[in-house]
């Protein structure tokens, strides 16, 4: 059974229909790269899966549970699916450790010592155990993004959504974040990531989704999609036309 099932999902902002019937099933352990032009609806799709946007029609289910827009269902969903943002969105008034601990203690009611132990373990996993007491503005962009990943992992999600998580980084910091994601993929984490890192998509992803004008325009294993694009739109996007 698929872990994430996206069926005929439609989403409009006013009269602008951004998602025009998306179908996509993601199996456990799959790493999905979502590529496509600006405005094709990639971020909107991820945000719908996490309930940050309400869908107009169709359905999304995660691990068998339907996405519903009330606070209780949303909370249950978000405990299963973590999200990493382009702009990191760390809590600036808390240390790296505090960032990773907060939602554990507040949402899951984990006692503080356990939350701290988990935070240290997760920071170690992203190579930042020594930055436990550093505030976000004392960290580089790459470090901040890794803390954000640790923060999401501490909730022990079964899948992670990543929206262009390296796009706000200086080029020399991109690889440290991608290395962390690569590690997660190896450990079997289910990932849906919007990315412009084509080489990374080719190396790490199980499938590539090419979105065009609110639809899944082409989908397949990276070898196929990159080497042998079927549609002129994908060819053009990949710079082959």
């Amino acid at each position: 059974m698929s872990l994430i099932e996206i069926t005929e999902v439609r989403k409009s902002f006013g009269s602008n229909e951004v998602l025009k019937g998306i179908n996509l099933d993601v199996d456990p352990g799959e790493v999905i790269a979502i590529i496509g032009k600006s405005g094709s609806g990639k971020s909107t799709l991820l945000r719908c899966v996490n309930g940050l946007e309400n869908i107009d029609s169709g359905s999304i289910s995660v691990a068998g549970a339907q996405l519903q827009p009330d606070e209780l269902h949303l909370k249950a969903l978000r405990l299963k699916v973590g999200m990493i943002f382009q702009q990191f969105n760390l809590f600036p008034h808390l240390t790296a450790g505090g960032n990773v601990m907060l939602s554990q203690t507040v949402v899951k009611k984990v006692p503080k010592p356990q939350a701290e132990a988990m935070a240290r373990k997760m920071l170690e996993r992203v190579g930042l155990e020594h930055k436990f007491d550093a505030y976000p503005d004392e960290l580089s962009g790459g470090q901040q993004q890794r803390v954000a990943i640790a923060r999401a992992l501490a909730m022990q999600p079964i899948a992670l959504l990543c929206d262009e998580i390296t796009s706000a980084l200086d080029p020399e910091l991109v690889s440290e974040v991608l290395a962390v994601v690569r590690g997660l993929a190896k450990e079997g984490m289910t990932l849906m990531m919007v990315t412009h890192e084509m080489k990374f998509a080719r190396d790490v992803c199980s499938r590539v989704v090419f979105m065009h004008q609110g639809r899944v325009h082409e989908i397949g294993p990276p070898a196929e999609v990159f080497a042998d694009p079927k549609t002129p739109e994908l060819k053009q996007f990949l710079g082959m036309l």
Binding site: L52, R78, G82, N89, F91, V106, V107, M155
Partner: peptide, 22 residues
């Protein structure tokens, strides 16, 4: 920043928790 609301929501916090802690 709107991102603070979204990040805390994506971690499962409810409205009051977002206000109180973030």
């Amino acid at each position: 920043n709107k991102g603070q609301w979204e990040a805390s929501a994506s971690l499962g916090m409810g409205h009051i928790q977002q206000m109180r802690y973030v």
